[in-house]
Amino acid sequence: MSLLRYLKRYSSEIILASFLVPALVLLLIFQLIPTIWTIWFSFTDMALIGKKLIHPSFIGLKNYVDMLNDSIFWQSMKVTFEYCLASLVLRFILGLLAALYLTSKMFRGKTILAAIFLLPYIIPGAIHPYVWISMLDTRYGTLNRILLFFGLTPQSWVYKRAMESVVMINSWAGYALAMLILSSAITSIPKEFYEVADIYGASRWQKFSKITLPLIKYPVILSLVLIFKEDIDDFTYVYMFTEGGPHYRTELLSLYAYHKAFAYFELGYGCAVGVIIAIIVFVLTLAQLKLGGV
């Protein structure tokens, strides 16, 4: 009886809380359940073919133990680290630079500039690799022609410099995320702060390092988190360009998980690699959020 009374008194809050239900249901069914399922699979010897697909058996931590002795796993760990670090730095710096251009008073034509900066982000991701073919082609590619023009040695981008190429495409396609977040943050800093700084004769660098940067600390951390998450998760470019090669030099962890599961049919093992990626993401995200005092 008292519960009923309680419910009646808080009916408005309950109505409001019920607004959460549709989104949470969607997230639970299509995000949480597959996640938990994946974690379960990672403890089994499930395979994509044969009767192990239907009747996998529980093998405990075997997949994870195997991973420790798997040289390709460690190789792709190293590759992933390089790729993520390079992408993170490039995407963030390009994004910050673009955000500064969009918010600085020194440069004109903001609307056009914003449109140009956003183009790669707006264009559907499935097109990105094709668009870069013309840049990276060894014989006629624009990049090599530019190198030749400056008297430098042309490179075999897609094959020998696969990692650099992929990072280049990824930064091109993805810097706009940081740009959007950072420029939104910078525009919301009250002008008065800079005017006060001007009164005291602060230099451009001082204004940036003493006012802008501390005030956009949280957006900076957030964009780093999001960039990192996207990079470690997404393997479209290596998949289309290099298929992880040559010699696993671009075999990202996510691609390795995919290969293990769908090319070698070791579904359980693939899921285990996926869980490792998820753990890395969780730990680093939480650490970044904590560090930012969020």
Binding site: Q31, I33, W37, A261, G270, C271, A278
Partner: peptide, 22 residues
């Protein structure tokens, strides 16, 4: 809020098969 953010952080490739079954 953190849960909502992190729930999307599971690599999509790892979820393929459960998602397919679901």
């Amino acid at each position: 809020m953190t849960f909502i953010l992190l729930i999307g952080f599971m690599p999509s490739m790892a979820k393929i098969l459960p998602l397919f079954k679901l």
